[in-house]
């Protein structure tokens, strides 16, 4: 997967969350976005997901530049998978209906084919027993796994995950991280915003340090955790890995 950012700027009011970010990276499996809160990680992920449009600059993913209009972006979003921190699922629909909705209404699959595919993916994530439950009756970890299943069911080009475990307790975090680690095997590229440094070190090919409206450091995971290459990132790691 290749991501090229050219002078990407995004501001909310007077606050420039991303300030002329330029980056050109290629990776096989997983890119982890790490960094302090408010540093622009989630904003960058939303831009990559086509949910927001940069105020200035261009984003090119796998050689295709992202459009500006909502209809262009919608077409792009239909080809990719996104999982947010929490509340991804539609609470009035059962787990399987959540997976079916994009398959049937967005991708036009017939009812039988959609159902077969949804059941297969729930089975793969060991969620078959929960297919008929509403989100309120699922644990936080199960909900996130259904959300990942829904994103994956459409056979997306790649997956974007925005702190998928930050709202979970440690046990559930492990259960969701297991699933994400498993995705690596399936060959789908992943971009992951995370605070789980141990997980980033083990799973990511590349780690990008997003802070202060830019990406001051981006290098292979092993290298990054040995030497992030700049004092700011070093301080961040020291703080977060202290305990």
């Amino acid at each position: 997967m290749r991501i090229e950012l050219r002078d990407v700027t995004k501001a909310f009011g007077a606050h420039r969350v991303l300030d002329r970010v330029t980056l050109d990276i290629t990776f096989d499996h997983t890119l982890a976005l790490v960094g302090p809160s408010g540093g622009g990680k989630s904003t960058l992920l939303r831009l990559l997901a086509g949910l927001d449009v940069p105020d200035a600059g261009t984003i090119t993913v796998d050689g295709r530049q992202l459009g500006q209009s909502e209809s262009e972006l919608r077409g792009y979003r239909r080809e990719i998978g996104v999982v947010f921190q929490a509340y991804n699922l539609f609470p009035h629909l059962t787990a399987i209906s959540n997976v079916l909705l994009p398959l049937v209404e967005v991708h036009g699959l017939g009812p039988v084919e959609a159902r077969t595919r949804a059941l297969a993916i729930l089975e793969r994530f060991r969620l078959s027993d929960h297919a008929g439950k509403q989100p309120a009756h699922l644990s936080g970890g199960q909900r996130q796994r259904v959300a990942i299943a829904r994103a994956l069911a459409i056979d997306p080009r790649f997956l974007l995950l925005d702190e998928p475990t930050s709202a979970l307790d440690p046990e559930m975090t492990a259960e969701v991280l297991d699933v994400i680690a498993e995705l690596r095997e399936s060959g789908k590229p992943l971009v992951l915003v995370t605070h789980e440094m141990g997980f980033a070190r083990h799973t990511a090919d590349l780690v990008a340090f997003v802070a202060g409206g830019g990406i001051p450091s981006c290098r292979p995971a092993a290298e990054f955790f040995n030497d992030p290459g700049m004092p700011e990132a070093r301080r961040f790691l020291a703080k977060i890995l202290k305990y």
């Binding site: 997901a49 919608r74 077409g75 239909r78 996104v82 947010f84 929490a86 991804n88 209404e105 967005v106």
Partner: peptide, 16 residues
């Protein structure tokens, strides 16, 4: 807002 975001993320049109 997360519901609107999720709906947009899976590619639903505003009407859908």
């Amino acid at each position: 807002k997360s519901q609107w975001d999720s709906a947009r993320a899976i590619g639903l049109t505003p009407l859908q």
